[in-house]
């Protein structure tokens, strides 16, 4: 009798409720994450009259007018173009300087290497607020204020260290024997790096590029400080619209949804590397 109860308890404790409780916890957590995003999407598909006068969980008059506003008004869509331009520039610059440096850190000891590696990290940890004013003055004095390249260079502050650290993590995983064999086979350093080494760490380059893109895309403070008209990013356009007396909630929500799209598009491909990227390649 006692045995039967124990067995029943064991069965109940191990199989059914445990699986369910896990699923419930995950479902609740995902619901918590997705609800605010759903609300933004919901609002972007409503008319302003419906947003302000009725409280509806799903849009009653489904409208794409808010998206149409953004995609046809240059004041809006140029924000996306500007953001994409400086983000791409930044990714290219960061990766092209970080690749050789990461190789050096992963393969050689040289004078001051540890200090240099740490110093790079401190730049990732520097609060952008500290750099906002000096950047403004530096780029004004060299005549780069309100250009895409200024924002791209400013974002190198945190993206170059990030790229170096992530790439170094991936390069350490490539056995050194490969380098040596290639040199014996008569490859020059450049030839080896481009033809043999780069394909081997292509996933690392992809991950590093993704994170450079992402961190430059999500940043607001520096990009807003360094631009006024010609290179104004979408993020700054959004915050300034909020200051106006009548806020166009529908368009604001639609603009927000459109900024999520680039991340959402590639998220599936980097899903196993997200923790690694955020932790600077150390996981």
């Amino acid at each position: 009798m006692a045995d039967v109860t124990v067995n029943q308890n064991a069965a109940r404790g191990l199989s059914l409720p445990r699986v369910n409780s896990r699923a419930v916890v995950m479902a609740l957590y995902l619901l918590f994450l997705l609800l605010p995003i759903y609300w933004l999407l919901n609002m972007s598909l409503k008319t302003n009259t419906e947003i302000l006068n009725e409280f509806t969980l799903v849009p009653r008059d489904l409208t794409f007018a808010n998206y149409a506003t953004i995609l046809t008004d240059p004041a809006w869509y140029m924000g996306y173009v500007n953001s994409l331009i400086y983000v791409t520039m930044n990714t290219v610059i960061s990766l092209s300087v970080a690749l050789p440096a990461a190789y050096a850190f992963s393969r050689y000891h040289f004078m001051g290497d540890k200090h240099l590696f740490f110093w790079l990290l401190t730049n990732r940890m520097a609060p952008p607020a500290v750099f906002a004013l000096p950047f403004f003055q530096l780029y004004s004095s060299v005549g780069l204020f309100d250009t895409h390249i200024a924002v791209a260079l400013a974002h190198c502050l945190f993206n170059v260290p990030l790229a170096v650290w992530i790439l170094e993590g991936f390069m350490r995983g490539v056995p050194k024997e490969i380098d040596e064999t290639a040199y014996i086979d008569g490859y020059s350093f450049g030839g080896f790096f481009v033809k043999i080494f780069t394909p081997l760490i292509s996933s690392g380059i992809g991950v590093a590029a993704f994170f450079c893109f992402m961190f430059s895309w999500v940043e607001l403070l520096l990009s807003r400080t360094l631009t006024t008209v010609d290179a104004k990013p979408i993020a700054a356009i959004m915050t300034r619209t909020q200051g106006a007396s009548g806020i166009d909630w529908g368009v604001l929500a639609a603009a927000g949804v459109l900024t999520i799209v680039p991340g959402a598009l590639v998220i599936w491909f980097v899903r196993n590397y997200i923790a690694k990227g955020f932790a600077l390649g150390r996981v």
Partner: peptide, 27 residues
């Protein structure tokens, strides 16, 4: 993994906007 990563990849000002809207008593 994919759904959980979504908030991490949203621009920070949009995170602010999402919660600004989500928390308003009228809308």
């Amino acid at each position: 993994l994919v759904l959980m990563s979504l908030p991490l990849l949203i621009p920070w000002n949009v995170v602010g906007t999402i919660w600004q809207i989500f928390g308003r008593i009228d809308i």
